[in-house]
């Protein structure tokens, strides 16, 4: 069976592109298929969010299989919020059996942000423990309890890191823990404050982490000045510089300006030592991804062979 395309792209030294696809708040397979058709060929792999911001949506694994049917390579997301170690390991086996090659391990947004704030959360494992669990399933053929399995899940393991959260000095150490647990690629929270991001990259370069993990810098087109201001004020762990808000506020064509900004950001992060690719998070605005990828000079995507 073919391994992960994303892994091969990185191994061959190409600047990787991943993009996020949010599943629908319904069982509408056609919706996922349409997004897949729109984005085919514009990224090396596509992240399918796992009930992002704790809002119930089609499951990440199911939507991943739907985009696979359209010839796209998915990265499933697994959060620790909704499943215990039994559910997580079981779903990983199921995903691997369905041909899924990439898994991104996250703690998960707290349920208080979502549409079922009355829910009981799980957090049996944290993201670092989940990474280690999946690595041991793949490399040792063992479940968390130590029991062996016959066929191992062959997945490329990713994690996330937020360079803009606190305590800042601990962020690089936290990524180091994730790498030691088994993470092979990391997607960062969207980079809007480049100065701060450069400091983070310096810290992880100093620790030699960029030789051990592929850093995909997160970028996000922000569709309106109002949204930028909202994120600046209300989204914990995001740094939205004033200049960015002002630029959007002054723009005659805001959407065009938003795309211009992302294209510039990609050009800048591409020059930072240790950055191996970008992860484009065009949440609910996926249709702009092709234009961003083209204008950033990242199209067509490389074709790599096993």
């Amino acid at each position: 069976m073919r391994g992960s395309n994303l892994k091969r792209v990185l191994e061959e030294g190409h600047f990787a592109v991943t993009a996020e696809i949010g599943p629908p708040k319904s069982c509408d397979a056609a919706f996922v298929h349409r997004k897949a058709d729109l984005l085919r060929g514009y990224a090396d792999a596509f992240n399918i969010t796992d009930n992002q911001t704790a809002i119930v949506r089609m499951s990440s694994i199911a939507a991943a299989v739907l985009i696979q049917q359209k010839g796209l390579e998915p990265v499933i997301q697994m959060t620790c919020r909704d499943r215990n170690r039994i559910g997580l390991q079981s779903d990983l086996l199921g995903a691997a059996a369905l041909g899924i090659k990439n898994v991104l391990c996250l703690t998960g947004d707290h349920q208080s942000f979502g549409n079922h704030p009355q829910a009981k959360n799980v957090f049996d494992l944290d993201s670092i423990q989940l990474i280690k669990t999946i690595k041991d399933m793949r490399d040792e053929g063992r479940f968390l309890c130590g029991e062996e399995m016959k066929v191992r899940p062959d997945v490329f393991i990713g994690c996330v890191e937020n360079p803009f959260a606190d305590p800042f000095e601990f962020r690089a150490l936290r990524l180091q823990k994730k790498v030691e647990a088994g993470a092979e690629f990391v997607q960062t929270q969207c980079v809007l404050d480049l100065k701060h991001f450069r400091r983070f990259m310096d810290m992880i370069n100093d620790r030699g982490l960029t030789d051990r993990v592929a850093v995909l810098a997160g970028v996000m087109p922000i569709k309106s000045a109002r949204m930028a201001r909202y994120m600046q004020r209300n989204v914990a762990g995001m740094m939205v510089p004033d200049e960015l808000c002002e630029r959007l506020e002054a723009a005659a064509d805001v959407e065009k300006e938003a795309i211009d900004i992302v294209v510039e950001q990609i050009a800048e992060v591409k020059e930072i030592p240790g950055v191996k690719g970008v992860h484009i998070m065009a949440v609910a605005w996926e249709e702009v991804v092709p234009e961003i990828v083209r204008r950033a000079g990242l199209y067509p995507r490389p074709v790599v062979n096993d």
Partner: peptide, 28 residues
Amino acid sequence: SKNLMNGPCGGSKNGKCEISPEIDCAWQ
């Protein structure tokens, strides 16, 4: 708020938990 065992999640900001500015981030 997520009973994490390995350090703060990405929602820790200015010493506070992502779910409320009234809650201290335990990992901070």
